[in-house]
């Protein structure tokens, strides 16, 4: 369990930086088409912003923004976005994950439909990765330290 940091500098700087980190992460996710980056990197940076918040302001305050339950739901939803886009292509008459068929409902050319499909997929991946990394972070940092039935060498 991480307590709130008593260092003013860390707290204030973390407070100021977190929104910018989040926007940077979103930028990385959204601009995966043109520059290095994409869902995984963006998701991990998003998770890093929560980690920063957790390390500086304590887990209690972080939990107010992203609880374990919310993280679990978000990870499901993120992966479902990916799988759902694939299934949508299936419903629209293509093979699984054939984004070109999305053009039928989006009314764009197949190439652009694929581009938009990639964007959607990246958003799903980013959500899932962010939520899972938060989950793992919470799980490891809130694990009970004191063993209940603890056998030691003594």
């Amino acid at each position: 369990m991480i307590q709130e940091s008593d260092d003013v500098i860390v707290k204030a700087v973390a407070r100021l930086l977190v929104p910018f980190i989040v926007v940077y992460a979103l930028y990385v996710v959204m601009h995966g088409h043109y520059s290095p980056g994409g869902g995984f990197q963006g998701g991990v940076i998003l998770a890093a912003s929560f980690v920063l918040l957790g390390v500086s302001h304590g887990l209690e305050k972080t939990r107010r923004r992203m609880s374990e339950k919310a993280a679990m739901v978000l990870s499901s939803i993120g992966v479902l976005i990916y799988g759902g886009i694939g299934a949508l292509c299936l419903i629209l008459g293509g093979n699984y994950l054939d984004y070109a068929k999305l053009g039928k409902i989006l009314r764009v050319t197949p190439a652009e439909a694929r581009s938009l499909g990639i964007l959607g997929v990246e958003i799903g991946v980013a959500l899932a990765v962010m939520a899972v990394m938060c989950t793992v972070f919470f799980a490891i940092f809130t694990a009970e330290e004191s063993p209940e039935d603890y056998r030691s060498l003594e």
Binding site: I140, A143, E144, P147, E148, Y150, R151
Partner: peptide, 8 residues
């Protein structure tokens, strides 16, 4: 962590 919890 589970192992540590069990055996210390």
């Amino acid at each position: 962590i589970l192992i540590y919890r069990r055996y210390g």
